[in-house]
Amino acid sequence: MAIKISATEFDPWQEIQIYQNSALRAGQFGATNAFIGTMRDFNDGAEVKGMTLEYYPGMTEKQLEKIVGEAQQQWAVLDALVIHRVGAVLPNEPIVLVAVWTAHRGDAFDACRYIMEALKSKAPFWKKELLVSEDERWLAANTKGYKTD
């Protein structure tokens, strides 16, 4: 398992490949499920030109490790990689990567979904958006993750 907090832009595709090559044995895994969250340039009816991601150093990593541990108890997870951006983020930059390696697809889909949803509700990160209008606003809460309009 690896948990990384990144203050600079990261390439999720490259990170998946590097981690897979270093931490997993070829032939051991039959399924890889990855979720990548990318910053949009719109949110909640406004044009967004940037955001700042704050976190709680120490607690954020502790909660992410706990979440991945919970997934490992429920599904047959061989390994998992979680990377999350902090600091100043621009539209089109990756915010989060959750990648899960398993022998079979069901465990990979379910564990990845579980980690991502738990991260959304429990990992201490907070987004402050900078709008094109120059207004700033803290996001009040995460949504359920479906298009609603």
Binding site: Y56, H84, N142
Partner: peptide, 28 residues
């Protein structure tokens, strides 16, 4: 949170604890 774990507001704190207060999280 106390010592970086979520707690109820009615839980008791100990000497040298770190207590944190924050709004709902919005990462991911």
């Amino acid at each position: 949170a106390v010592n970086m774990d979520y707690v109820d507001l009615d839980s008791t704190v100990q000497d040298n604890d770190e207590v944190a207060f924050f709004p709902p999280v919005t990462g991911g």
